[in-house]
Design a protein around this nucleic acid. Sequence first.
DNA 1: TTGAAAGCGCTAACAC
DNA 2: GTGTTAGCGCTTTCAA
Lengths: 335, 335
Amino acid sequence: MTIYDISEKAGVSIATVSRVLNGSSNVSEKTKKKVLDVIDKYEYTPNAFARGLGLNTMKTIGIMCADSSDLYLAKAIYYIEQKLRTNGYDSILCCTGYNLKNKISSMNLLISKKVDSIILVGSHFICESEADNKYIADAAAQVPVMLLNAALEAPNVYCVVSDDYTSMYEATLQMIQSGITDIVYFYNSASYSGKKKLAGYRAAMEEHGLFKGEESMQFYQGSHEDIPAMTNYLRQLCQKGVVFRGIIAADDTLALAAVKYARESRLQIPKELAVIGYNNSMLAHCCDPELTSIDNKLETLCQHLISTLLGVLGGSEMPKKTVFSGELIKRGTTL
Amino acid sequence: MTIYDISEKAGVSIATVSRVLNGSSNVSEKTKKKVLDVIDKYEYTPNAFARGLGLNTMKTIGIMCADSSDLYLAKAIYYIEQKLRTNGYDSILCCTGYNLKNKISSMNLLISKKVDSIILVGSHFICESEADNKYIADAAAQVPVMLLNAALEAPNVYCVVSDDYTSMYEATLQMIQSGITDIVYFYNSASYSGKKKLAGYRAAMEEHGLFKGEESMQFYQGSHEDIPAMTNYLRQLCQKGVVFRGIIAADDTLALAAVKYARESRLQIPKELAVIGYNNSMLAHCCDPELTSIDNKLETLCQHLISTLLGVLGGSEMPKKTVFSGELIKRGTTL
DNA sequence: TTGAAAGCGCTAACAC
DNA sequence: GTGTTAGCGCTTTCAA
């Protein structure tokens, strides 16, 4: 069923059908109804390709994320997808994994699909070396690129980020002020936001002369879901003689693993071991005591990202970078 | 940059460029190289719309799920998306929510985008009434529809499911055999697979004369992430005088809430309260003791779903329904 | 082995 | 207010 069939059955030209389809005002009510009736009757839907070919837009946004099964990223995707749809856009999702080559090929794929913009969810897309970030700038030469929780200065690239540095700085400060001095930072990602977090922790520690170098920063390298492996890491850390009375974790999963480690080691929480997580996800409620965690206002970030995107697409001048503050949600794992 | 530009710069016709692009054999090595060089030089990528218009396929699969932030669904999406990409397809994701109307409009949207198939992830898409499932059959009239963990008999609809009934039946049986008689089923969804699970539990209970009707089946109605609300539900259940020494939960989140409830109520697990979860997700490791849970082999299901889909798309005859068995993974919450 | 040209279904500029 | 028609960029016959 094409626009030609409809025009024929309705006894009008294809232009008129097209006008009705696109809500043009220059159609008489009578003709409009006639056309609409035929469309309804045959359950006709316009061919998106043909439309896209002419308009060179498909009202489609490409979303890239490293791993949609990651609790945090999944949530972000959910918010973004919903808000896009509300605004008449839909989305192609690409789970790229963590390999640069795959990221680049996903990007090319999306561009060849003529998406109107590309949203990079999470900070895994920013690499250490400038050169490795070229693919983002390249893409931005074609369509606006939006970064969620990552930053890159380039034309046509817009960033919406949570102030991870400050959040971590303040969380660390609070723990220090509660009288704990041996605080270890427990993390699993050296991504853009990962580095910001680490820097915030480090600044607070150094200011109080508590930073012990390598020993203070514990990097867990493994599946982001493998809690037993994480607790195991901490157990070994303890066996190696590293002393810690507080753990600040880069995400709630790591924090939860810390709580679990404490239980297994019969350490009282928060008295003998205090823990702070990050993301304020459902995991915060999953352990006992419940996690103190930093809420980085994901939904707000996503909402803002979409508003910015719509602005850009609409031709408005939009801020290149927007920063939101996080908030420490205190629960049972801190004093 | 279009195929015309390339043809001009390479000094050949657009047809030849097209042949090179599509790997046709009828091109001389020399011409091929010449064209490829130009393509490389200008970083030309074909316009997917135009291609789609002609071919009437975009090598794109529509994925619908109710809520991509659901742990289980997110995982499924991840597997599916990956496996599709490996096979040269990409995917448009639609998070529909739980409302029928939205589901239908998402479906129409995908069809109008000319997806080659639609995958419905999770059992929330099957409704009670036959009439409400018409939208699926309608869609299947256009493109093959794949159901993950749901079943519907209709032309061009293919289902891959986990045998939830048997898994639950056997889990319940095991708990009964371990000497527990007051077992409550704790669930939050009356979807297709939700019903199968319930039926499995019920059958085992009835066979042993342990089923107490309504009291045995506790339906929690609330956010699928709100663990405090779930524990609260159980607390009230206890206060109402319902006696239970075992809880079989329809998913790990509910099970985890049960473990948490037990801790708060100072009940020993598994001695005073045994718990079995479902999905064998990361949550199983999140509580103490760790959850006994049913592994429903999600990755296998997804893998099989994609193979079936590729078969169907390739014109092969494929099974309309495939059933996989689950497996009870015993951990600390059962005797 | 290559090129010319006819679509694919739609939008939008232009004519009436 | 409505119809005609020229693209949009590609694939695919059909001829050469």
